[in-house]
Design a protein around this nucleic acid. Sequence first.
DNA 1: TGCCAGGCGACGC
DNA 2: GCGTCGCATGGC
Length: 282
Amino acid sequence: MPINQVLLEDRSARHTVSISVPGAFSLRDTLTCGQCFRWTQHPDGSFLGAASGRVCGAYQDGSSLTLEMDSPEDLPFWREYFDLDRDYDALAREFSADKTLAAAVRFAPGIRILAQDPWEALISFIISQNNRIERISAVIGRLCEVFGEPLPGGLFSFPEPEILATQTEESLAPLRCGYRTSYLLDAARRTADGRLDLAAVSRADTDTARSMLLEVRGVGPKVAECVLLYGFGRLECFPVDTWIRRVMREYYPGGLPDCALRYAGIAQQFLFHYIRNAGKQP
DNA sequence: TGCCAGGCGACGC
DNA sequence: GCGTCGCATGGC
């Protein structure tokens, strides 16, 4: 099975498992639909990425998903990360009560909501504001390379709050993230000194969690919603960016349909991908 | 060149 | 409370 060149060089230290996934699952759509920024695709079709200090090479062939991990004990972590144990078929049926949502699901039924690290999600979506996905990835890549720890496969960990908290606007300048630098510093310092307690956010009800995140400079309604959805698994949260605003104007002037509300965040990801990409293919 | 990007904070009213 | 504007950076 072709995983990727980088990892093959150090194969002895790695562990490969192939698992069966639902037919609709799409590794590619899941990793390239704009919810995460640290996976790269290799010419052989495999993906290489890191999350929570773990490295993963991933390759999909139909209903077979092959994961190359640091340790066999990481499998439960990656199952949860890729949300492999949720019944998305049932979800698709629920969503299909609405015509637009049904079309969005049909367009890319294999998208899954990744369970990302809260701290990484916070910083990533602060950087995402008024920015393009390619550039967000580039900035985060530099952030990890400069301030993270080296991992297998030439990757780097996401830098801890304590590391970023001791930086300055000058030392962060090489990231070229513009005016968001001060936001990033505020988030890091609050997290490092406990004014923002991500474990407490995790325990709190969603309204309380949201208000805790909104205290960070550079975190407004949209970023808070993204952090809750992608970092804390609050699947009812519904980030509204320029694309989703377009969807709302065009299809839902009266608000989201009832069938979307319970898992509005998942619906949002399908709609986001749909509005950005439908029509691009011939 | 101007416009826009997974927005937000400051400001004016 | 709501609308408008500036904001770094970079691609088209």
